[in-house]
């Protein structure tokens, strides 16, 4: 147990709000919180645990900015209550890689300039990780369809698609994950290029 929190970080406690204990396993660490039952998983991450990599876009399940992985499956954390996740294993963007050792998707997003403002990016990457875990999408059309829950208002879609396809192609070619992230293998159809503005 690493945290016992009763008010959002840096704010006064909410008056008269009945709280409920919940233990959340996030990125491998167990956090015990006392929170109001109406706290969404997204608000628990951002406001109580300072895991602000996960973004709030629409707060209504429409944009995908809040995507996290629960037991390896992607969900919208804005439409889920923290108290519903007592026994879940939650992975956020902070848990996918480290600054020294980026995950293959994180590296591919950088290599292919798959973002502009970056606001949708943590959700895009968590969603793409969920897509890879599902093992259903193989072609570009399938990736487009199965990434449709993540909107990008900057319109970085074509580079996001290239980045996701690179990781999928590398995975299908059987390259171990550790070797993709170094940029060892570039897919035939998508040569590395200088970032475009």
């Amino acid at each position: 147990m690493s945290h016992v929190t009763q008010a959002p970080l840096g704010r006064p406690p909410v008056a008269l709000a009945p709280t409920q204990p919940v233990a959340l396993r996030i990125n491998g660490a167990l956090h015990s919180l006392n929170i109001a039952p109406w706290t969404t998983l997204l608000d628990a991450l951002r406001e109580y645990l300072d895991l602000t990599g996960t973004k709030k876009g629409c707060d209504h399940g429409q944009c995908g900015a809040c995507t996290v992985l629960v037991d390896g499956k992607r969900i919208n954390s804005c439409l889920s209550l923290a108290v519903m996740h007592e026994d879940s294993d939650i992975t956020t963007i902070e848990g996918l890689g480290t600054a020294e050792q980026l995950s293959p998707l994180q590296q591919a997003f950088i290599d292919h300039d798959a973002f502009q403002c970056g606001y949708c990016t943590p959700g895009q990457i968590c969603s793409a990780q969920g897509l890879i875990n599902e093992g259903r999408a193989k072609t570009e059309d399938e990736v487009r369809e199965l990434m449709s829950g993540n909107l990008c208002r900057c319109g970085a879609y074509s580079n996001i698609l290239t980045a996701v396809m690179e990781v999928l192609d590398n995975q299908q070619a059987g390259l171990p994950a550790g070797e993709w992230s170094a940029g060892a293998a570039r897919p035939h159809d998508a040569p590395a290029e200088a970032p475009k503005q």
Binding site: G61, G64, T67, V70, K73, R74, I75, N76, L79, S80, S127, G130, L131, E134, L146, M147, S148, G149, N150
Partner: peptide, 9 residues
């Protein structure tokens, strides 16, 4: 229907 994230929930 919906999106992959929503269908997972």
């Amino acid at each position: 229907g919906a999106s992959p994230q929503l269908r997972n929930m």
